[in-house]
Amino acid sequence: MHTLIRSFLGLWYVLGALAQTEIKLVADENVTLPCRHSLGHLGIQSLDIEWLSNISDHGKQVLLSYSGGQVYNAENHKGRYSFVSKYLEGDASLFIRSLQPSDAGQYICKVKNAGQYQWSFITVIVLVKPSELACSSEGAQLEGKNVTLNCKSTAGTKPLNYRWVRVNLKDNVERPVQSTARIGPENQLLLHNLSKTDNGSYRCEVSNEVGKRTCDVDVTVQSVSNTGILAGVACGVVVGVFLIFFTVWLLFHKKEFKKREEEEFFNEIREDAEAPKARLVKPGSSSSDSRSSQSGSSSTRSTTNSASRSQRTHSTQETPHGEQRHHCLEKI
Rank of each mutant, 00 (worst) to 15 (best):
Q70F: 06
V111C: 05
H327T: 11
Y87Q: 05
K129R: 15
T303R: 13
R6G: 04
I125V: 11
V84L: 12
C235I: 10
N226A: 13
T214C: 02
S131W: 00
T313S: 11
S65A: 15
Y117W: 13
L52F: 04
N150F: 07
L280I: 12
A307V: 01
S225Y: 06
T32E: 10
Q118Y: 02
Y66V: 03
E209A: 15
E209Q: 12
P101N: 09
R291D: 02
C215A: 15
Y117R: 09
S295Y: 03
N73R: 04
V248Y: 06
Y66I: 05
E89A: 08
G139V: 06
I244Y: 13
C35P: 01
K152G: 00
N161V: 15
E330R: 14
V84M: 09
R309Y: 10
G90R: 03
V248S: 09
R163D: 15
Q324G: 14
L169G: 03
L133E: 04
S53V: 07
T157D: 09
E264Q: 11
A114L: 11
F8K: 10
V281G: 02
R80K: 15
E268C: 00
S207Y: 03
V173L: 11
D216Y: 05
S56F: 00
S285E: 12
N30V: 11
H314R: 14
N168R: 09
I269E: 05
P276C: 05
